[in-house]
């Protein structure tokens, strides 16, 4: 498959730009097209791409060529800077409640990685903060969701509050919070069932849980392989729940992960963590610069700038 990164694309476009003292209108148009195509190929939402390219173009047309950089290098630098800025600040930490317990609620589409990520977060909190978390098993729909959470929890030695699958999830959460208070758990992580953002009934259920416990974190878990749909998902969950952050999973694959850019652009919410495997240790904080390079398909931006 022709999976050209921006590097290759721009290098081609730059052959022409090289040694030119000034970028002409036609040059700029062609270069912008390459940027546009590279982002689309990486699954960035088309509307997000449109905005982004417009911004880069305005900047490119407006800026004086920096000393020591030729026009092509200049454009690459603008793209990289803009994208890194869009991806947000480095490592935004988890919110913490003034009084224990800090409540974290995991939400997202079916199969995104909520339950696995709940486990990874709990392990991280244990290791870094000596935390004593409690899981609340609020997925009563997916077959064997509770045994799954229990097995995850057993691996990292964290207790699970569960009431089987016949109880209403909001009621389960209410009871779970009582138990957490009694046991002085400093963190509560609520595992919810996967759902579509267009499923009003199930989205209302999440809103009801939110209203009951006022979570300190509502983390939207999104599969990094998601295509154009990522904006709809992110927008849908954010509109309903005002999420506090995002976890991007399955980044250990070969996806370019353009969804990250789409999500940032439509919600403005920070991507806090990335999932990089199935094991409990496979969670990393989010690095915007790495994500920017990944989306653009650039191994090393500086090398490219030097070569241009």
């Amino acid at each position: 498959m022709a999976f050209e990164g921006l590097t290759e694309r721009l290098q081609k476009a730059m052959e022409k730009l090289r040694r030119k003292p000034k970028v002409t209108e036609a040059d700029l148009r062609e270069t912008m097209r390459e940027i546009r195509l590279a982002l689309l190929e990486a699954d960035v939402n088309f509307a997000v791409v449109k905005d982004f390219v417009k911004k880069v173009r305005e900047q490119a047309a407006g800026t004086e060529v920096l000393k020591g950089l030729n026009p092509a290098q200049q454009i690459v630098k603008i793209v990289n800077d803009q994208l890194t800025e869009l991806m947000g600040e480095e490592a935004v930490p988890l919110n913490k409640a003034a009084h224990i317990p800090t409540v974290i609620m995991m939400v997202g589409l079916q199969g995104a990685g909520k339950t696995t990520t709940a486990g990874k977060l709990a392990l991280r909190l244990k290791n870094e903060n000596h935390a004593r978390p409690l899981f609340i098993a609020a997925d009563v729909y997916r077959p064997a969701a509770i045994p799954q959470l229990q097995q995850v929890a057993a691996q990292i030695d964290v207790p699970v509050f569960e009431k089987g699958t016949d109880e209403d999830p909001v009621e389960i959460v209410r009871q779970g919070m009582e138990v957490a208070k009694q046991n002085h758990n400093d963190y509560v992580i609520i595992d919810t069932a996967g759902r579509l953002q267009i499923d009003e009934q199930l989205m209302d259920e999440l809103a009801n849980i939110k209203e009951l416990v006022h979570p300190d974190e509502i983390l939207l878990v999104i599969d990094a392989m998601t295509g154009q749909n990522a904006v709809n998902t992110a927008q849908g969950f954010d509109d309903k729940l005002d999420i506090t952050g995002v976890v991007l999973t399955k980044l250990d694959g070969d996806t370019r992960g353009g969804a990250a850019m789409s999500i940032r652009a439509v919600t403005g919410k920070p991507i806090k963590f990335v999932g990089e495997g199935e094991k409990m240790e496979d969670l990393d904080v989010f690095h915007p610069d790495r994500m920017a390079s990944r989306i653009l398909g650039m191994g090393d931006m500086m090398t490219l700038i030097e070569k241009a």
């Binding site: 699954d43 998601t226 295509g227 694959g253 996806t255």
Partner: peptide, 14 residues
């Protein structure tokens, strides 16, 4: 294949 997958679906299939 998850229908909400983007370009990666093609890598998967391949």
């Amino acid at each position: 294949l998850d229908a909400t997958t983007g370009q990666n679906a093609l890598n998967q299939a391949k």
